[in-house]
């Protein structure tokens, strides 16, 4: 019995020391981690909607109201330049080839896709993972929101984007996601803006 208590005590001391060491290192790093997280998300938003200078996240209720059943859209931000609303960014989670894939799409107020950026993915290196490369993401830039986007090997028309070779699942997942966002923007957000302007 005595030995048990002794062992427990020693183990307790070790864990207590470990916990305090971790507490110290957490206090050193936590602020920086939060800052780095914020910067990363800010940078991503700037990347997909470069005309905006400031972003304001829509709250839960507003988000629900806009997306309805499409709960895979997890976040919408309004982008402002000065006090003008210039566009929106959307975070969406879709099913890629290797698992869930989260990406961000920006749409400007004049009805153009301003960019996409893949945030989290588990796609095959060299195939689906190429969805993070500029040759793919840049092909979405400037596409109008009023026509369905399709992916082809050699994009020519205004609604065609670059397909990823041998990664149809990834390509389709992203293109379908962009089309959903496009639709939701046209139905719920583009009109609203007009109304707000009138007010």
């Amino acid at each position: 019995m005595n030995e048990t208590i002794k062992l427990a005590l020693i183990l307790f001391i070790i864990t207590a020391v470990a916990a305090s060491v971790l507490a110290i290192s957490n206090s050193v790093t936590s602020e920086r981690i939060a800052e780095a997280d914020r910067l990363a998300s800010e940078r991503a938003k700037m990347e997909v909607l470069d005309i905006a200078e400031e972003f304001k996240q829509l709250d839960e209720n507003r988000l629900k109201e806009i997306v309805g059943d499409n709960t895979n859209i997890t976040e919408i931000n309004e982008g402002y330049k000065g006090s003008d609303l210039v566009g929106y960014t959307f975070n969406i989670e879709v099913n890629g080839y290797g698992g869930p894939l989260t990406f961000m799409t920006g749409i400007s107020k004049d009805g153009k896709i301003t960019g996409i950026k893949v945030l989290v993915h588990e796609e095959t290196p060299g195939l689906g993972a190429n969805s993070t490369r500029p040759f793919f993401t840049d092909s979405f830039k400037g596409k109008p929101v009023d026509s369905e986007i399709t992916a082809v090997r050699e994009p020519k028309a205004d609604n065609e984007v670059q397909a990823l070779t041998s990664a149809t699942v990834t390509t389709n997942a992203i293109v379908d996601g962009v089309n959903l966002i496009r639709q939701i923007y046209s139905e719920k957000l583009s009109n609203l803006e007009g109304m707000e302007v009138e007010r």
Binding site: I10, I14, V21, S25, N26, I33, A36
Partner: peptide, 25 residues
């Protein structure tokens, strides 16, 4: 008798510290 759990706690502590600093910097 308790050397393995003690070692694991030590190792886990160092890994967590590395993880925190990597995440921060």
């Amino acid at each position: 008798k308790i050397r393995i759990p003690a070692f694991i706690v030590v190792i886990a502590t160092f890994v967590t510290i590395v993880e925190m600093f990597m995440k921060a910097y």
